[in-house]
């Protein structure tokens, strides 16, 4: 976990291969996908969301559970077999009533670099941390 965040720092999740689940929505079913004219079963957006929240937990730790905020819009479908990676970029660190709040833009990209989901996230830093000089996150 980085000790500080600075504008422009980039946070990146591991690349994962998207997968469907047998108990998921019907569009995850290969037969339904085929008969509906889809190129492949559609992976639910909970998959994208998990990538982003895990990335936030990695960098903000327990504070994400008490001060984390996220707003994401899903843009294009993720298909089974595609890869997905979450990225976040620090936009600013601004004072908040409870401490310094780090504001980030967040996105998920597939193997072609297409943006499948994007939005904003923020989290208040532990009081001992902040926008001071030090090791960046990127």
């Amino acid at each position: 976990m980085p000790t500080t965040f600075r504008e422009g720092d980039t946070l990146v999740s591991p690349v994962v291969v998207a997968q469907t689940h047998s108990k998921g929505a019907p569009v995850q079913d290969p037969e339904v996908a085929r008969s509906s004219g889809l190129k492949a079963p559609v992976v639910p957006n909970v998959f994208h969301f998990a990538r982003i929240t895990e990335l936030m937990l990695e960098h903000f730790g327990a504070h994400w559970r008490t001060h984390g905020e996220i707003d994401v819009r899903y843009i294009s479908p993720l298909h089974a077999g595609d890869t997905l990676q979450a990225r976040a970029r620090v936009l600013k660190v601004a004072p908040d009533p409870e401490g310094d709040r780090v504001h980030l833009d967040v996105r998920c990209e597939n193997q072609d670099g297409a943006v499948l989901a994007q939005g904003a996230a923020s989290c208040v830093l532990p009081s001992a941390r902040g926008a001071a000089s030090g090791t960046g996150a990127g």
Binding site: P26, D29, V42, R65, D71, V72, R73, Y74, G119
Partner: peptide, 17 residues
Amino acid sequence: PLARGGLFTAATRRYRR
């Protein structure tokens, strides 16, 4: 199948505890 469930298209979450 295509009537059941649906798709998330956007989500906003705030975590407090």
